[in-house]
Design a protein around this nucleic acid. Structure first.
Lengths: 372, 372
DNA sequence: AATAACGCGACATTAGTTGTCGCATCATCA
DNA sequence: TGATGATGCGACAACTAATGTCGCGTTATT
């Protein structure tokens, strides 16, 4: 990742994307440097609204990054330069003032271009059906930015873009479970900063609300629901917690317990989310109807797929290496009569049995009803 | 949309997110104002790599935005300030120099926070299976930024985040069709700026490659394939073109023909993509197995869903208002024996018939084989 | 109630920025 | 190919902005 030639002359300063020349570093190390830069750094240090930062803290952080500036200058910059020119607010209800960016302000440095804006709009359409509203909301400044750019682009010829772009999700869009913003923030922070969390969990089975300390190990977003993988304080076994049933989350004082041998992919494939996966790929062989053949020619099942026409019919023979998982089986099931699986035998049997059971449901005389 | 109290004191300047005080506007109108601001504006005017901007053009654009600066100053700023501090490159192979941002540079102004970064990572996981690689690549600077933040966050305790976050797509992930970058750029620009495009289309049926002029009306991304809706020069009827079969796209000289009565939602629901939708919602009634009941309790089918336990079994009764579309029917089909639809009758019949057909496929003795 | 921390106006000093000019180089067009 | 207008760039002086310091009033903290 990088800046082929220039890379030698640039240095990352702290966590920011601010670059300073090697020459200057060599000469004076942490001399003040451009005000432009200090301003940009400040702008990056000021968090978006729910967060805020106190002036002395800002001064401290700036110093860490090499900007040894007088407190007075900082105050001047904040109250006279930045906050008049940017949507920056100040909480002056108590004395070390706290500064924050407006909740929905967004500024990309290389500004968005048209294709990227369009991509963002598409992405939003997809994600709205996949992630909880709050989580997508996290990105709303990005999307808003994109929409604004598109809006302004054809301000003359009416902004038509909203009528021109659609994303059709890959399957039935269920309504994502609602979670609240602070929960998402706390959980994501805990997970990534390796901290324990306390929260109340509204258990599905029992109606009990149990406050405990949890040690997050992972997050899995499945369909439209999102789950935290964690173990309860003092226990060894990993459990899943639906994010939308977590209430009153807050970082815990307890030290975080890691689980060294935890492998999230292994965990998922072992069937925890109903997606059991065989250890290796299987070779799928099937006869498929024309519409399916067309679909798969455009968006293949896998890298190694072959499709050939069968003589004397509108059917095709499909061969593909696919993972041995529930997802694929469901997909085959959704194709209904348009697919006739010949191998592997287990799938063939599974599909047959499923069809038998379905049929049994709809048989007026429950003749062969050996179901549930 | 915006800044409740401050809104009066801020004015949008041009297309940028740069704000200037009303007071200053009143006094001197377009006086130069802060260098900081001019710099930021310049940074926003300089496009990301494939694009570039010539110095005189930049001067012109700055002037439009109220920065009446001498050419010399511009040159100094570019070559001495910005390009030494930012990953900005210069094409000096011909005389009006062209400036551009490094391809993968990204700088958010309120810096990314941890929850947003995590959301971006999840979003990327989902989108990779939904949109063509190039399109997702359009956003890669965002994702890279997020990953970098997470990487640096727990640089001490190893960056574990990659092992902690997974998105399981909603259905079988087909491999998105590949399209090339310039095609995406040209098509998206044409669509949004209402221009005609010339391209060669590799027709699916015929092997002919036909260069024509097209008038884009919309884009639909379905599953993992993306389609342009356009009509061919001189014709009235709207046709779909898979983006990955479009080659050699370029903006056309022809004026763009609009189609005033075009409604993309209507178009989709009329069945163009296999998603025919009835005019109104239907009331779905079904008996569902326990796992499905659990799933739907978390991520409902619709806003108006009710689920109640049936006596003496592990089954539940589901009632929901759902759209009368293929998507929903497919979803029901994918549930297999876990769902028993009682209404509407058409779906019940459809499911039954589908099951019969599937069964016929797998019947060794094709007893009731009335299929194809 | 005392002390330290913070915000802010003012001011002198320092540092950076800007336009101008002159010259060299490059692109364009005849 | 040669003339003409653009463009880039070094230098310099005038100008503008940024910075640290001091003092005072106000606000937390103990």
């Amino acid at each position: 990742m990088g800046y082929p030639r220039e890379s030698l002359s640039f240095v990352r300063r702290g966590k920011l994307l601010i670059f300073i020349t090697v020459a200057k570093v060599g000469v004076t190390m942490s001399e003040a440097r451009d005000t432009l830069f200090r301003y940009l750094t400040m702008l990056q240090l000021i968090p978006r609204f729910p967060g805020r930062i106190a002036t002395p803290v800002l001064k401290e952080k700036l110093a860490e990054r090499g900007f040894k500036i007088d407190t007075r200058s900082l105050q001047r910059d904040l109250s006279q330069k930045l906050s008049t020119q940017f949507p920056i607010g100040c909480d002056d209800s108590q004395k070390p003032y706290r500064w924050y960016f407006d909740r929905d302000f967004q500024c990309q440095l290389p500004a968005l271009d048209v294709p990227s804006a369009l991509t963002l709009v598409l992405a939003e359409e997809y994600l709205k059906g996949l992630l909880p509203p709050v989580v997508v909301g996290q990105l709303s400044p990005h999307f808003t930015d994109a929409r604004r750019l598109l809006d302004e682009m054809n301000a003359n010829g009416l902004s038509q873009w909203a009528k021109k772009v659609r994303a059709i999700p890959n399957g039935k869009a269920l309504i994502p479970a609602e979670i609240d913003e602070s929960t998402w923030q706390t959980i994501s922070e805990a997970l990534l900063e390796q901290k324990a969390v306390d929260f109340v969990y509204l258990s599905r089975s029992s109606e009990t609300e149990s406050p405990f300390t949890f040690h997050p190990q992972g997050i899995v977003s499945r369909h439209s629901a999102t789950y935290l993988l964690a173990h309860v304080n003092g226990f060894e076994d990993l459990r899943q917690f639906a994010l939308h049933r977590i209430k009153q989350a807050s970082l815990s004082q307890h030290p975080w317990q890691s689980q060294s041998d935890f492998d999230i992919d292994h965990y998922i494939q072992s069937g925890a989310f109903g997606y059991r996966q065989g250890p290796s790929d299987v070779t799928l062989e099937a006869e498929i109807a024309k519409p399916v053949a067309w679909l798969l020619q455009e968006t293949p099942l896998s890298e190694t797929q072959t499709i050939e026409a069968l003589p004397d019919s509108n059917w095709y023979r499909l061969t593909a290496q696919v993972p041995d998982d529930q997802q694929t089986l469901w997909w085959l099931m959704g194709m209904g009569a348009n697919v006739k699986v010949t191998a592997p035998a287990t799938w063939r049997e599974a599909l047959k049995k499923s069809a038998e059971q379905v049929l049994a449901h709809y048989q007026d005389t429950p003749l062969a009803c050996e179901t549930h």
